[in-house]
Design a protein around this nucleic acid. Structure first.
Lengths: 366, 366
DNA sequence: TTGATCTCTGACTACGTAGACAACATCCTG
DNA sequence: CAGGATGTTGTCTACGTAGTCAGAGATCAA
């Protein structure tokens, strides 16, 4: 065992990190014993233990999880496939997931897919599997137009249903978007509105479809006519566009908007048209973004409990990783669904609005 | 070399993934040759190449980056230490970073620290290093009250200056918060306001301090008096609180708020007090969140170009990872800084407001 | 005393990949 | 046709950790 010192590169030589072997040498024990100490295994003398720990301290040793992972086949890492957007929902979910992960000893790798990139999800998943993640989270179910033919050999967690995903051990969590859509719509109908209009999110998102479906069901149940659906892209700008349309139509008295950001755009468009919220038109949003309570008027909306979803879903996922029980999917949790009533909803006006918006206002600069 | 089949566990046996050895066996070549094909190394016959690729396909082989990393000492992963918040700035930065990473072949691990947790950053960094990341990004510089005594042996990238961080190869990117603060303040002064009030972010954030400093400089340069600073926590709620205070003071005619979310809260408080924006009070925000253009009134603010910062910073980081050149920090980029003027700012009112807010309004529900 | 059990420690090895180097075939140059 | 350059493939090994098993010493019961 000759100690060979490989030729140091001339430049800034980043010294090799000490390994358990180095610690062992310094402590005068075998590498395996160091491993034992570090993993708290039994059958180590107190004296040896302290000697090893001292050596660890002296060398500034840090255990190498890469080698560990190679050996055990477990990386203790979970991969998250997200959409590269700063939208409130996805962002919050990411945060919540990370927070939920902290205590479990797992860490997180994030890969974003560009929306619209066909096969983007499959590519992202491939990437993660090559990285050796122990489980995968698909946070934003999107209909990519074709089934996702994934050869995934790790458990998968999705938020909300994800038809078209062909993966075996699959877990589902998240709120019941359909019920949420119903709740919002029923609230408006109960206030006396003849019907409720809907500004939906992108049709490719299953979350949009769920809320849309809930809205449909509520209208059908109430025997209310179903107006045409306007579709946005979650952004305030798209809400604004939809709002311009809706402002033209004097029949509109109530709108369920699929998220709060679009609601802001809708409100702006209505305001510019001289339409008052909620006096002329009532508005219900979705998400309960932090600023929802501070808009003018404060927005009635439906909060999503990301922390709960994340914690529950992650617990299931980790359970499945550590003790595979085969596919057991979980129904959305019907609890914790409620409307936060603020000031953007009221009974419909007694008289219909006059057609061309009076008091025209300035338009916002881009 | 007897083929030993280890005893399969009775339950759901997750079959071992094929390795390059299995591919080699199937293709009738050596493992090394498989490696060559996969890495596009020269000196492989076209015929062998196709045979290997066929075997790869047949077995559904995926390269194991863990083993690869162990061998090379490089994980091709970058660790991000973030704060567990869904704030627009940090979220956008995260997204931007991930987006910038995609093309580089690197992936991303995220660890959040709980704000206020002393040593949280150090702990997060330790965790990442154990995971074997090749570089670290500290996205939100916070003053933890004590220096961060990090033994980091990988390059570090921070967004904005990060005093108190003791790490060697350190890179800095991000916008010039001081100049941005000046810009906002000067805009308001130029409109004729006697002075400008400031609602700052948390003092622990260096970003807050930078904007604060810029505001101070602008006031000093103009010989304007420096009013007391109100401090929020970036949330609309905290902005609302600050707004309530400011609404009481008839001297206030212009406010620079350190982010758009707080601006929304401030605007709400002013509106409730019957104060008009911008007629009575002018407001400048920071960030240019997507809804800023759709508030009432549309908010004048300063966008942050996260994509550019992220791309530039990441490029530097990766450069430093792959070809260490020693510490070379970079000054914030003075370019790309501009005010988006919308409708929340105007000249000050000619007559001071009467003291007690007329037209009192309802308060928003929690 | 003998052996059985328990405690502690170390030697050896696998994990999957890629680098170093060797072996061999082929082709070219003079 | 010798000598060298070039192309193609394989063997062996390291990377850092933890699992397996064996061995040494101590303790205890029969």
């Amino acid at each position: 065992m000759a100690d060979k010192t490989p030729p140091q590169p001339a430049g800034a030589a980043r010294t090799r990190r000490p390994g358990s072997t180095d610690v062992a040498k310094l402590a005068g024990v075998s590498q395996k014993t160091v491993s034992r100490v570090l993993n708290g295994e039994p059958y180590v003398t107190e004296e040896v233990r302290t000697r090893v720990l001292a050596a660890v301290e002296e060398l500034g040793y840090r255990r190498n999880n890469v080698a560990r992972a190679l050996n055990s086949g477990r990386t203790q890492r979970i991969g998250l496939v997200a959409l590269g957007t700063a939208l409130y929902g996805p962002s919050s979910l990411l945060i919540a997931l990370e927070r939920a992960t902290r205590s479990t000893g797992y860490s997180f790798s994030v890969v974003n897919t560009v929306e619209g990139d066909p096969g983007g999800v499959a590519g992202a998943v491939d990437h993660l599997i090559e990285q050796g993640v122990d489980g995968i989270v698909l946070s934003e179910p999107i209909d990519e137009g074709q089934d996702i033919p994934l050869k995934i050999d790790v458990p998968v967690l999705t938020f909300g249903r994800f038809p078209g995903l062909a993966a075996e051990p699959i877990l589902i969590t998240g709120g019941d978007g359909v019920r949420a859509g119903r709740l919002a719509t029923e609230h408006l109908l109960a206030l006396g509105h003849r019907t409720v209009w809907h500004v939906a999110g992108p049709h490719r998102w299953w979350a949009s479809r769920d809320r849309l479906e809930g809205w449909r069901q509520a209208l059908a149940d109430a025997g209310a006519p179903e107006p045409p659906v306007l579709e946005g892209d979650w952004s305030p700008a798209s809400g604004y566009e939809a709002g311009l349309e809706l402002a033209k139509n004097p029949e509109v008295t109530a709108i369920f908007v699929a998220n709060d950001d679009m609601s802001i755009g809708v409100m702006r468009a209505l305001t510019e048209a001289g339409i008052r919220v909620p006096d002329d038109i009532s508005l219900v949003g979705f998400d309960d973004i932090p600023s929802a309570a501070y808009l003018t008027p404060p927005l009635t909306t439906i909060p999503q409990d990301f922390d709960t979803f994340a914690a529950r879903g992650l617990a299931d996922l980790i359970q499945e990783i550590e003790a595979p029980t085969g596919a057991h999917s979980q129904e959305p949790d019907p609890l914790s669904l409620q409307l936060v009533v603020r000031q953007s909803t009221s009974a419909p006006p007694s008289t219909p609005r006059s057609l061309p918006g009076r008091r025209p206002r300035r338009t916002p600069k881009k």
